[in-house]
Amino acid sequence: MSREEQDALSRTALGVFRLNGQFLAVSEELARPAGLTAAWWQVLGAVLHGPLPVAGIARAMGITRQSVQRIADLLVAQGLASYEPNPAHRRAKLLTPTPEGRAAVGRIDPGHAELAARLTRELGGREAFAETARILERLSAAMEAISASQAPPSPPPSRAGTAPPSRTPSPD
Score class of each variant (00 low, 15 high):
residue 3 R to V: 13
residue 4 E to N: 09
residue 8 A to Y: 04
residue 8 A to K: 04
residue 9 L to D: 01
residue 9 L to A: 12
residue 13 A to R: 15
residue 13 A to L: 15
residue 15 G to A: 10
residue 15 G to K: 03
residue 15 G to Q: 05
residue 15 G to E: 04
residue 21 G to T: 00
residue 22 Q to E: 14
residue 23 F to R: 09
residue 25 A to P: 00
residue 25 A to F: 09
residue 26 V to N: 01
residue 26 V to T: 12
residue 28 E to K: 03
residue 29 E to F: 03
residue 29 E to C: 05
residue 29 E to V: 12
residue 32 R to G: 06
residue 33 P to K: 11
residue 34 A to T: 04
residue 36 L to R: 01
residue 37 T to N: 06
residue 38 A to D: 05
residue 38 A to P: 03
residue 39 A to C: 00
residue 39 A to N: 06
residue 40 W to D: 13
residue 41 W to H: 06
residue 45 G to E: 08
residue 45 G to D: 07
residue 46 A to Q: 12
residue 50 G to C: 13
residue 50 G to E: 06
residue 50 G to W: 12
residue 51 P to T: 05
residue 53 P to K: 00
residue 54 V to N: 14
residue 62 G to C: 08
residue 63 I to P: 00
residue 64 T to K: 09
residue 64 T to A: 12
residue 64 T to M: 04
residue 65 R to D: 15
residue 65 R to F: 04
residue 66 Q to K: 14
residue 68 V to R: 06
residue 70 R to G: 08
residue 72 A to Q: 02
residue 73 D to Q: 14
residue 74 L to A: 14
residue 74 L to E: 14
residue 75 L to W: 02
residue 76 V to P: 04
residue 76 V to C: 08
residue 76 V to Y: 06
residue 77 A to T: 05
residue 79 G to V: 08
residue 79 G to M: 05
residue 81 A to P: 04
residue 81 A to K: 01
residue 81 A to N: 01
residue 83 Y to F: 15
residue 84 E to C: 10
residue 85 P to I: 09
residue 86 N to R: 02
residue 86 N to I: 03
residue 87 P to K: 05
residue 87 P to S: 04
residue 90 R to M: 07
residue 93 K to Y: 02
residue 95 L to V: 14
residue 100 E to C: 08
residue 101 G to T: 07
residue 103 A to S: 15
residue 108 I to T: 15
residue 109 D to V: 14
residue 111 G to Y: 06
residue 111 G to I: 02
residue 113 A to R: 15
residue 113 A to Y: 10
residue 116 A to S: 10
residue 117 A to T: 11
residue 118 R to E: 08
residue 119 L to D: 01
residue 119 L to H: 07
residue 119 L to Y: 08
residue 120 T to Q: 15
residue 120 T to P: 02
residue 122 E to I: 10
residue 122 E to M: 13
residue 123 L to T: 02
residue 124 G to P: 07
residue 124 G to K: 08
residue 125 G to T: 07
residue 125 G to A: 05
residue 125 G to I: 06
residue 125 G to W: 10
residue 127 E to M: 04
residue 128 A to F: 01
residue 129 F to E: 13
residue 129 F to R: 15
residue 133 A to E: 07
residue 136 L to D: 00
residue 141 A to S: 07
residue 142 A to E: 11
residue 145 A to V: 04
residue 145 A to F: 05
residue 147 S to F: 06
residue 148 A to I: 01
residue 148 A to G: 07
residue 150 Q to T: 13
residue 150 Q to M: 13
residue 150 Q to R: 14
residue 153 P to A: 13
residue 153 P to H: 07
residue 156 P to R: 12
residue 156 P to S: 10
residue 159 R to I: 13
residue 160 A to R: 11
residue 163 A to S: 13
residue 167 R to H: 14
residue 168 T to R: 14
residue 171 P to Y: 07
